[in-house]
């Protein structure tokens, strides 16, 4: 991997960390349920950097968390988060970023906004919940329906993040087209 790719991966991992440290934004039309921007960072990593670098950025971020850096939203970190019921979601993050990046790469002919919405929904929601809910079932012995029910409260927030991620991707593509590395 070139120095340039290495630094890009590190900067996106830092961006995911920074987004998690921002105060949660309360979305008015969701009844003020606070959402953190961290999983937005995961979607953006895939959409902006492409599958390989995007997934590596997320893995690097998780590696730092495992080493003990309190970088998960709310200042959590350390090995404990990998023993907690939500570990499946964390495992799903790099895969989700990979899939989102792959979709951006394979849909070059599509408009950035539309492609990014698809990438974020499939990679950022589909894949991540696809890992998260079975993970929850394995860790808590809950039935699949109950586990799915328990995570449903986060879905509206995640759809808001899809829209934000797509708008961000489009803004970046207009401001500095070569920055959309997934399509470079």
């Amino acid at each position: 991997m070139s120095d340039r790719s290495l630094v890009q991966v590190a900067f996106y991992a830092a961006l995911i960390a920074a987004l998690g440290l921002l105060p949660p934004i309360a979305i008015p039309f969701l009844g003020g349920v606070p959402i953190t921007a961290q999983s937005l960072g995961v979607m953006l990593a895939g959409i902006m950097l492409g599958p390989v670098r995007g997934a590596l950025a997320v893995l690097l971020f998780l590696f730092l968390v495992a080493l003990g850096a309190p970088l998960l939203a709310g200042g959590r970190g350390g090995l404990a988060v990998f023993a907690s019921p939500s570990v499946g979601f964390l495992i799903g993050w790099p895969v989700g970023a990979f899939v989102a990046g792959l979709i951006m790469q394979k849909t070059r002919q599509l408009n950035v906004l539309i492609a990014a919405v698809i990438a974020a929904v499939v990679g950022g929601i589909g894949v991540i919940y696809g890992f998260g809910i079975p993970g929850l079932v394995a860790m808590t012995d809950l039935t699949f329906d109950k586990a799915a029910m328990g995570t449903a409260v986060y879905l509206p927030g995640d759809f808001v993040k899809v829209i934000i991620a797509a708008v961000v991707a489009q803004t970046v593509a207009r401001g500095l087209p070569q920055a959309l590395l997934s399509r470079a």
Binding site: A14, A18, T171, L176, A179
Partner: peptide
């Protein structure tokens, strides 16, 4: 967040 992502890439 968009300008933040842009600045991150430029700085990188």
């Amino acid at each position: 967040i968009a300008p933040l992502a842009l600045q991150a890439l430029k700085m990188s």
